[in-house]
Amino acid sequence: MTGGSTTGDDGSAAPAPAAPEKRQPWPLWEVFVRSSRGLSHVHAGSLHAPDAEMAVRNARDLYTRRNEGVSLWVVPASSIITSDPDAKGQFFESPQGKDYRHATYYTKSDGVKHL
């Protein structure tokens, strides 16, 4: 033990392996939290975990410590297919100027009482 703490490791731990192990980092998971009201799950962040069961437990520890939710989803980050940030133009700019896709574009006919 190298630290100054007296309450931790007493040196009885197993000796470190001779050669430093080449450790695979834990995979990344995306976390979705649903708050107590009947809302959708909302993306809250990400975390590392060795497997799915531990991922949902880590999510509980990292993202619901302050009463934020009643339900959790975790999804392997590698399973999420994202839109291409370089394709913003072709993906997202087309609706601009197409006001007729919004209900507010239309005026209500006089004969319609309840709309």
Partner: peptide
């Protein structure tokens, strides 16, 4: 907790 202003990041101390 008031239900009307709940959100995904709502923080409450609980009771």
């Amino acid at each position: 907790m008031s239900e009307s202003n709940a959100s995904a990041t709502r923080i409450t101390p609980g009771n």
